[in-house]
Design a protein around this nucleic acid. Structure first.
Lengths: 363, 363
DNA sequence: CTGAAAGCGCTAACAT
DNA sequence: ATGTTAGCGCTTTCAG
């Protein structure tokens, strides 16, 4: 009773193991391992026999065994701290994830996703578990935050991490983003100025996001460079409700003060804001021009079609995954994806400012 | 040189193992194991010491080691065969995933997600890898298909599976769905009939989906029961483009034939269709009523707000995860979530039919 | 060129 | 009540 054969017999028809393959090929398990991992020191005929045996048994190495052995789990993690509702309106994550997967899949890596409500501590717990249970080789972070506590946490947990976006204060965490980040907002401002707008408002995302601050700065700089002072700036929360509230506030001003164009920090807010304006009696783009950010398919769907700033989230996801492989020293065939800088997609929600006795609005 | 201590020394400051905890607590590894797994046969003081040691070392069991040992990976898989673009417009998956995660997280289970384009074979390969590499304990399927090949595949792979939706031909795969599936479409039909509509069209999803056939049947039955014959039925593909095309076709008919109301199989199509109609010169809801399906947040965002049939995808996800735990014999504290039947959410995109000389449209 | 054997961290018999 | 130990399936020295 060697145990080995006993076991094999007992489990007939169950998952084959490397031992089964070795037995069928008439070689040792280490020979099989070498063949499957492309190590050399195996003769062509032997390699051939092993390959055939593996194919016949439909065997492939157990991911868990490999992970236990080599400390490589072949999975990367991602933690999304968002409510289902926001997640559903904003495909930001979804697009990123598609890109990540595109890059992971060919390398036989998986994506372990954790969606953890926004309650404090939940996010940190998720990262801790990922690290302490050694479930993933690294994590991909998004939504760079001001004073981001995650970097320190992950460093402490010794969990490799890649950030999608602009890191806070040149934190040494590897980050991927397109060059020319300011191009989008600048183009939008020029676009609006070209239409004659002079009172342009900005509705930003949550205050704790790095891109909120960054884009607002670009916005203000771009206007200042043209000798104009920025219009009102409100900060919102990425939700439709937030956008409606912001719009209400902006349009409550009297005609002389009221913005004739509004830049929103994402498409969801832009669309919601656009319709809020319409409900208040303002036509888009006749009375008010609206610009979004992200270029989600949603913008094509609505009426009028949304002018927006495109950023290629799928490519960003790919780049993040590629960067992760770099960090882990994993050779990955794919060429490093190029990420285009954000650029303006002019559609129907922007137009010339009306000089006549137009704005009759409010309601 | 026992090796054990040698190792521990060598790796100071690295991840602690169960042996480190045992050493610190002055007990055997099996004692630690028993404490951590709630097995009995451990005295209170010992248990206490172990817990303290584990806490001090911030130790928690390695997921891979546990998986290798017990054939339990503490992860469930999900394969989404969709293009990023569709994924981005349709948060169907995202909502489901939120629900699944809600249920998985407390049990310390993870979700391994695979997004694989729609090219043939990609999906099957993904399931095969999940199974053969023993990466997950089971998989959750969505979008029940006619003649679904996945059931047979998964059975063959011996991979436990739960379907979200209506299984094809009472396939014995465990499935979760709300009772009263027909309630939504019926309510929508009644709602439209109440507004005086008599020519109601239906734009369904892809032909290979079970719910496509099911809902169409309900639609036709509901009308037949009122002594009416169904209007035109087109099948589309869940995309905005598809909806625009369908709308164009429906509105091309002359006024006597033209539908006065259209039911769409999802909200994305409904919104796209609504705006297509508007571009063709038809006002919604004055000239045409539109109803969607899913009750995505999107429907609140657009103008006019979309009347739609709500189904609680988050709850469905939770139920699916719970069912998976049942299948795996894993005790899970949460009470089984209840799923409400689909129901109508009347908003602004539906209204009374115009009898006057209204339809001037087309363009 | 090939094989034997030592673990990776953990759990569950099986001792004690 | 607690400890010892044999694997889970794999990779990797180290010997032949």
């Amino acid at each position: 009773m060697t145990g080995r054969t006993g076991r094999t017999d007992r489990r007939r028809s169950a998952k084959p193991t490397i031992a089964d393959v070795a037995a069928l090929a008439g070689v040792s398990v280490s020979a099989v391992s070498k063949v499957m991992n492309g190590r050399d020191g195996i003769s062509a005929p032997t390699r051939q026999r092993v390959l055939e045996a593996a194919a016949k048994l439909r065997w492939s190495p157990s991911a868990t065994a490999v992970a236990l052995r080599g400390a490589r789990t072949r999975a990367v993690g991602m933690v999304a701290a968002r409510s289902p509702d926001v997640l559903a309106t904003d495909p930001h994550f979804t697009l990123l994830i598609s890109g990540i997967e595109r890059e992971l899949a060919p390398a036989d890596y998986g994506l372990l996703l954790h969606i953890v409500g926004e309650e404090p501590g939940a996010e940190e717990r998720a990262y801790r578990r990922l690290a302490e249970e050694r479930r993933v080789d690294g994590v991909i972070l998004t939504e760079s935050r001001i004073g981001d506590a995650r970097f320190e946490l992950l460093r402490h947990l010794r969990l490799p991490a890649v950030l999608v976006g602009t890191p806070w204060q040149d934190d040494p965490i590897p980050a991927v983003q397109a060059g020319g980040q300011d191009a989008g907002v600048r183009a939008a401002v020029d676009h609006l100025l070209g239409f004659g707008h002079r009172r342009i408002a900005y509705v930003s995302g949550p205050q704790d996001r790095v891109h909120t601050v960054f884009r607002r700065q670009v916005f203000e700089t771009a206007l200042a460079e043209r000798g104009l002072r920025p219009g009102r700036t409100l900060s919102s929360d990425f939700t439709a409700q937030g956008a409606v509230a912001a719009m209400g506030e902006l349009l409550a001003a009297d005609a002389a003060e009221r913005p004739t164009a509004v830049l929103f920090a994402n498409d969801t807010m832009a669309v919601a804001g656009m319709n809020a304006a319409r409900r208040l009696g303002f036509d888009v783009p006749r009375d008010l021009s609206v610009v979004g950010y992200d270029n989600l398919p949603l913008g094509e769907l609505v009426y009028p079609r949304l002018t927006t700033i495109a950023q290629d989230l799928v490519q960003l996801g790919r780049a993040a995954a590629a960067a992760m492989f770099g960090l882990l020293n994993i050779p990955h065939a794919q060429a490093p994806p190029t990420i285009h800088p954000p650029h303006l997609v002019p559609r129907e929600s922007t137009g010339p400012v009306l000089t006549g006795p137009a704005l009759t609005g409010a309601g």
